[in-house]
Structure formats: C-alpha cells, structure tokens
Design a protein around this nucleic acid. Structure first.
Lengths: 122, 122
DNA sequence: TGAATACTGAACCATATAGTTCACTATCTA
DNA sequence: TAGATAGTGAACTATATGGTTCAGTATTCA
C-alpha cells in the first residue's frame, strides 16, 4: 500500500462495516429489546457459538455492543456510543443529496437557457 | 454455508459496506459539492484510475452514486435513493440505544431497591 | 467428584476488498 | 492521421470476512 491520505475515521469505518452485515443488524435489533448471552444469540441466528462470538466481537470493537462475563455466561447489551456519530454523518450528507436534487430544477433551467441561447444565435 | 435466516436487506448490506471505507465517504462528500470525472477523483484521492473506478462501482451498486459517460469522460454524481433508507435504519435503532440508557436509571433504582430489601431483611 | 454448560482460541476454507500493473479501446485535438 | 487523454478489463497480491470444526478451559450443578 502507498501512503494513504488521511480522510479516515477509523470509528466510522468500524461501525459502518459492522452494520453492513444483516446478522449483526439483527443482533443490535435484538439487544435493543433484551440483553442476551452468546448462546441465546447463536440459537436465534442459527449459528455456531464461535461464529456468534465473532459477530459480537465485531460489534464490540465498533462500540455498538458491550459485553460482560459473569460466571460462565457473557451477557451482551447495547454499547454506550450508540450510533450517534453514524447518524450525524448520514444526516449531514443526506442534506448534500437533497441539495443536489434541488439543483435539478436549476439544471433544467440551465438547459432551457442553453436552448434559448442557441435559438437566439442561429 | 447452512441455510440463512433471511434477516438480510441486501440494499442496506451494500450501502453500509460502501460507507465503511473512508475514501468512498470522501467521494460522496466531494460529489455533494460538485460532479466529477473518474480522473479528477483519482487525482484528488491519490489513486490509480482503475482503483477509483472500482470505488465508484461500489458506490454505484449501492445506489449512492450515478454515472454517465459522455465522450471519453464518465461523470459521477450523487445517486437518487440518497441515504434515506440508511438514515431510517439508524434513527429507528438509535431510539433503542436511548431507551436502553433511560433504562439505566431503572437499573439504578432496582439496585437501590435490592439494598433496601437486604437492609430490611437483616 | 464428575458431567453438563458456556465460552474461547486456533486453524482452516471460500470469498470479497483494496489496491496495483499492464494491455487495450475509444475519443479528442493539433 | 498521430498522439494524448479517459476509461476499461483481466490478472495478481495481500488482507479481511463469515463461516466452520475441533480441542480446550472455566463454571455450575447433581
């Protein structure tokens, strides 16, 4: 890899990547209603314990989930940071999309203007 | 792979995955201010044309960017769907996080209650 | 104490991603 | 028409992801 221009926000990298998997979105959805052990999540999502452990680790690294082990069971709950930064990025950029489509009217106006210009210069 | 429980929303898979890369978030940011050719994006993000082409393809597949080739230049602009579904998912689930932390007060209350109970039963 | 439960970690597999180079086509422009 | 420009596509590399199995450790319960 060459040197990278640092636009990176590792936090957003991690959380958007975490959200890009349907199982993990499902886990967040579930934890929003009740805390859960790895085992119960693995059952719900029909997956091995090990597989579920990995998904939870990804969510944890992204700050979306917190876990605590008591005795032999590790309980998973929603994390502290909670989608705030992600919501902020999305909202900020959603405005750009909207602005762009407001601009459509503008473009249409410009096209009309061009046509008029051509007609005038003929 | 075993059979998968269908929680999947391929659209969200694609768009969140697209957003998980800093370069691609940068591209969206840039296109929010001005349309751009592959070449100009490649220069701005210090990357080969081929590399940039791939990023744009990922964004296009996710519906976040539209492109049109006129002559030899392909112009990229923000797409139509524009982060609406993503914003919706995030907002819906952000509420779950908030609810969870409202519940913290509840937990603290319960702990207090337990202490009181212990004190009473001693 | 011994069996069952809950998790953990290493190792493996198939596929995807982020980037490259190189060879090519298509379009401008002088 | 020749050369420069803009993009495309195939092939390659290195690393990550999503899943598995298998062999462990730590806890709980009978």
């Amino acid at each position: 890899m060459n040197y990278m221009v640092q636009y990176s926000s590792p936090a957003l990298d991690l959380s958007f990547a975490a959200l890009s998997d349907a199982t993990r979105r499902g886990i967040i959805d579930h934890l929003g209603r009740a805390d859960a052990s790895i085992t119960s999540l693995a059952e719900k999502f029909r997956m091995t314990l090990t597989g579920m452990k990995k998904h939870v680790a990804v969510l944890e690294r992204a700050g979306l989930v917190m876990t605590e082990k008591v005795g032999r069971v590790r309980t998973c709950k929603l994390g502290q940071g909670g989608l705030a930064a992600e919501a902020q990025w999305i909202e900020a950029h959603r405005k750009l999309f909207e602005a762009r489509f407001d601009a459509l009217d503008q473009v249409i106006l410009e096209m009309k203007q061009e046509q008029d210009d051509e007609r005038t210069s003929e």
